[in-house]
């Protein structure tokens, strides 16, 4: 942890490179995400977006490059931290492309597991709680209150005691976001949160994300649904074949010839940003 400089971006990605054997999934990528912004990372399938996420959240160790996160608690070099420390100390939370809820636990339990580190700062205090020591009760009440707040926010209070795996798909997506928020993050990384949602659900999702941003948590977003991306993003980074091909506001990216070429040249089914704009 270095001294905090106020003008530093929340997340600074510098020359990030990730190779798997002979394949270079991310190639000398640099971009910044600023506090209070929704930053979207878009690009055709296989562009390396999820790999970037996995590097930021500690699931992969980058081949080279730096990932600096600067927040009130200090500056963190994410590329050198294991995943659980990134979530706990650097306060980066994430969701997954293929939802990873604790399917056999209830909605409420999912949200309480997310508050593990607040409830149990260390093993000793975790064990003391068996005998009712360590002021555990008060902590748990607060944790349930926080869970209730997020249940209301995602409109799932009525299903708090149902198994997470029994929820419909859209609700599972929302619950995963709420669970990530229960860790109290400064940066929330969402991996295709709108995938598989119907238009109404997408709209609700957009509203939820704006609400999270306005609550003070910055968002890094991977998304294929250009409607959502263009509507809510403050800043867009476009990747193709592991490289950054464009970076700017929605307006700038939409009109960038590189972006149009990348999307049309790929010939896949993704809508081009330009089409959506019309």
């Amino acid at each position: 942890m270095d001294a905090v400089t106020t003008d530093a971006p929340l997340l600074a990605v510098r020359d990030l490179t990730m190779r798997f054997g002979g394949l270079t999934a991310v190639d000398m990528l640099s971009f910044e995400a600023h506090a209070g912004d929704i930053t979207a990372v878009i690009g055709p399938n296989g562009a390396g977006k999820t790999t970037v996420f996995n590097c930021i959240t500690g699931f992969y160790r980058p081949t080279s490059g730096g990932l600096n996160l600067t927040q009130a608690g200090g500056r963190f070099a994410l590329e050198r931290m294991p995943g659980h420390r990134i979530a706990r100390h650097a306060k980066v939370a994430r969701t997954f492309q293929n939802i990873r809820l604790f399917a056999g636990m209830t909605v409420l339990e999912n949200l309480l597991v997310a508050q593990h580190n607040t409830l149990m700062p260390d093993v000793a205090r975790g064990l003391l709680a068996v005998f009712g020591l360590g002021g555990y009760r008060a902590h748990e009440r607060a944790a349930v209150e926080l869970a209730r707040f997020w249940l209301d926010a995602i409109d799932l209070t009525a299903r708090a005691d149902d198994a997470a795996g029994a929820l419909p798909y859209g609700a599972q997506r929302r619950l995963e976001i709420a669970r990530a928020m229960c860790t109290g993050p400064v940066l929330l990384c969402l991996d295709e949160p709108a995938a598989g949602l119907n238009p109404r659900e997408s709209d609700e999702l957009s509203a939820l994300l704006l609400r999270i941003r306005d609550g003070g948590c910055s968002i890094l977003l991977i998304e294929h649904d250009m409607g959502v991306v263009m509507r809510i993003s403050d800043h867009i980074v476009v990747l193709d074949h592991g490289k950054k091909i464009s970076d700017g506001t929605a307006e700038q990216v939409r009109n960038d010839p590189n972006v149009i070429a990348a999307y049309l040249g790929e010939g896949d089914e993704d809508e081009t940003p330009a089409e959506v704009a019309q």
């Binding site: 659980h84 706990r88 990873r100 809820l101 636990m105 597991v113 149990m120």
Partner: peptide
């Protein structure tokens, strides 16, 4: 308690646990 709940969460999905800041090894 949180410890037991973390055990069960671990059984359900270890990767999700890591993303929530739970030290899986401990």
């Amino acid at each position: 308690l949180p410890l037991g709940r973390a055990w069960e969460a671990l059984r359900e999905d270890e990767i999700a646990c890591r993303s929530l800041g739970i030290n899986v090894t401990i």
